[in-house]
Amino acid sequence: MAQTAESLQPTKRKSHSLPYWVEPTFTVVALGLFGLYTLWLVFFQSSGQFHNYLSPFFSPTESWGIKVLPAIWVLWSPLLFRATCYYYRKEIYRGFFHDPVSCAVPESRKYYFGETRFPFNWANLHRWFWYVAVIVLVFLWIDAVQAFIFNGHFGIGLGSIIMLINVSLLTAYTFSCHAFRHLIGGGSQKFSCSDGRPTTRYKWWNRVSTWNENHGTYAWVSMFFVWFTDVYIRLLMNGVIHDVRFF
């Protein structure tokens, strides 16, 4: 009870949060390291396959005759999907452009046009990159299934589990997307049928809305796991470690 003497003690009611620069700095470091790792893959690695394990950076392997660097063949779509993602946009504008670096922290640059001009107005194409990301996701699921098939027989290795977790996180990230939330139901004006029952689009929108609340978390965790999956497979390829077979 607040009115008792106990609560009248001089207490500091709230602890102050982290300094404002922590979050943007984390963004710059995390995205920067991921970017460098990706560039290294693009220019210095030509494959990412260890038996039935395929690195997500190199899937699909089939290129239907189109000749580009293997990593670039698939990388552009998830990269653009992430670059135009409503969550990453916030982190990128804050971390890399200081627009603003944090709330109520003054900005030094005078010139600002938001997302009204190239290249930033391309963020409006987010849904198109989502379509492509879903196609890539199909391949990743095929890869994940392949990861459980060892020479034609079902089996479970640590790599299989890692790849399954990876594709699950990517699925969670992709289907918690703001653009998907809009397309699946958010864009409709009415959520009820004439008999008062909810529309199918409402049910989907409602479900995606709850996923969407964690979109930022999925964004970071799935990105980390993509990297981790690739590292794991690369270590296997180079014989540094050996896969653990459970079954």
Partner: peptide, 10 residues
């Protein structure tokens, strides 16, 4: 000008 917003959420 909804395009001016860069969704930094303050």
């Amino acid at each position: 000008g909804v395009g001016m917003c860069n969704i930094t959420k303050c």
